[in-house]
Design a protein around this nucleic acid. Structure first.
Length: 274
DNA sequence: CTCCAGGCTTTAG
DNA sequence: CTAAAGCATGGA
């Protein structure tokens, strides 16, 4: 077992996990158990430290984006000098934008459409239990997130049985569309082209594409606009637009390559009703 | 009962 | 091209 110890000023387990960018975690002991792909870690804070215990330190170092200076990012966000954002940055400075597995992110956010977070978490858990491989971590049993190939081999009815509702047919279809060549081609694209390419996948529209480009490709010039962000835009930025594409343009034009960080701060701030 | 959730596909205009 | 209807499910 490896142990990664970091300062917790810019790394809060709770805020990083609960801000809506990932769904596979649960409270455990002093912190949380976190699952990504076929891997697991135990994440917790003690005194002024945040600690990761896991078998694959390299994987989770990258997963939690530990190579990046978040003090610098928070300062850049503060420098926009927007009162609401100053407040949000203080509360959310412990959020790290994760580097998540591409396939897992694609399927997870297809499921997220017109859905709420507790139910999304439940659906993903049932998918892992039904199709994932069994693993153990520190004596605890868990299931991996299934491969695209495995998802592609299931019927829409199978997913309906897991409670996906009308999204049942999107998963196998998107899984078949996710070829290795296509995934490889994604990496070379700039963010607007990547977003367009992701939108070709069944069940992936502009908002989900923004989430994938942010949480799997770390494209921080993406700004996903969902119902909560729309609420922030209306109520706090006093925006007039109702078209989500235009709201997206307003935010990305304003925040450029800080868009992803700002979006997460605003989303979390609004959803937690702080 | 209605309304809403990290919106999308399909169809109509 | 844009706009709107239709969509499963479960909790408030």
């Amino acid at each position: 077992m490896q142990k990664i110890i970091t300062d917790n000023t810019y790394f809060s387990p709770k805020d990083t996990l609960c801000c809506g960018q990932m769904f596979r975690y649960r409270p455990h002991d002093k912190g949380y158990l976190v699952f990504s792909r076929d891997k697991a870690c135990y994440l917790y804070s003690a005194d002024d430290k945040t600690i990761i215990e896991c078998e694959d330190g390299e994987y989770f170092h990258n997963f939690f984006d530990l190579g990046r200076d978040y003090g610098e990012i928070v300062e850049k966000v503060r420098s926009f000098n927007i009162p609401l954002l100053l407040k949000a940055a203080n509360i959310c400075k412990g959020i790290r934008i994760l580097n998540q597995d591409l396939e897992e992110t694609v399927f997870s956010f297809i499921i997220s459409q017109n859905n709420n977070i507790p139910r999304i978490k439940g659906i993903i858990e049932r998918i892992c239990e039904a199709l994932g491989n069994r693993h153990t971590f520190g004596g605890l049993e868990y299931h991996s997130f299934p491969s695209a190939e495995k998802i592609a081999s299931q019927s829409a009815d199978f997913f309906k049985g897991l409670g996906l509702g009308y999204r049942d047919r999107y998963l196998p279809k998107a899984a078949k569309e996710l070829s290795a060549e296509r995934i490889e081609a994604f990496k070379a694209l700039d963010t607007p082209s990547l977003k367009k390419a992701l939108t070709r996948l069944c069940g992936v529209g502009p908002k989900v594409a923004d989430c994938i480009s942010l949480f799997a490709f770390h494209r921080t010039d993406s700004f996903p606009v969902d119902t909560w962000v729309e609420k922030v835009y209306r109520e706090d930025f006093h925006g007039e637009e109702t078209n989500r594409a235009k709201i997206n343009k307003y935010f990305t034009d304003t925040f450029k390559d800080m868009s992803g960080y700002v979006q997460q701060y605003l989303f979390y701030y609004k959803r937690e009703d702080m």
